[in-house]
Simulated assay, not measured.
Amino acid sequence: MKKTLFELVNEVEDEVTFMVFLQQLSKDREGHADEWQNDSIASFLEAAADWGQASIDGLSHYEKPDNPWKRCAQILYMGKIYE
């Protein structure tokens, strides 16, 4: 069964798994643009940066990972859904 983008972001641990996630993030945008909160690259990057800044010390339901590859993937994933 095909993994969801959320499952893939949580499996990122190194450069190889980050690249797999990044490829699937791109495919998700192509196939499910209507599910994205941010429809331009500028708004996507702004949302990702805003969430990254807001979660720099963790959040009540989010523990910041020690792994920088996973953290970068999570920031990019949130660019899809964060408003």
Rank of each mutant, 00 (worst) to 15 (best):
E11G: 01
E13Q: 15
D14P: 07
D14E: 12
E15S: 11
E15N: 03
T17I: 03
F18I: 01
F18G: 02
M19R: 13
M19Y: 09
M19N: 15
F21K: 05
F21H: 04
Q24F: 02
Q24W: 00
L25I: 03
R29H: 06
R29V: 12
R29Y: 08
R29N: 08
G31M: 08
H32M: 12
A33L: 10
A33E: 12
A33W: 03
E35T: 08
W36P: 06
Q37I: 03
Q37R: 09
Q37D: 11
N38T: 01
I41W: 13
A42Q: 08
A42K: 09
F44I: 02
F44G: 02
F44Y: 05
L45D: 08
L45W: 01
L45Y: 03
E46K: 10
A48W: 00
A48M: 03
D50N: 13
W51D: 04
A54M: 12
D57E: 15
D57G: 14
G58S: 08
G58F: 02
G58T: 03
L59Q: 03
S60G: 09
H61A: 14
Y62Q: 06
Y62E: 07
Y62A: 12
Y62F: 07
E63V: 12
E63S: 14
E63F: 05
E63Y: 06
K64I: 01
P65L: 13
D66M: 07
N67A: 09
K70F: 03
K70S: 10
C72V: 10
A73P: 00
A73T: 02
L76G: 06
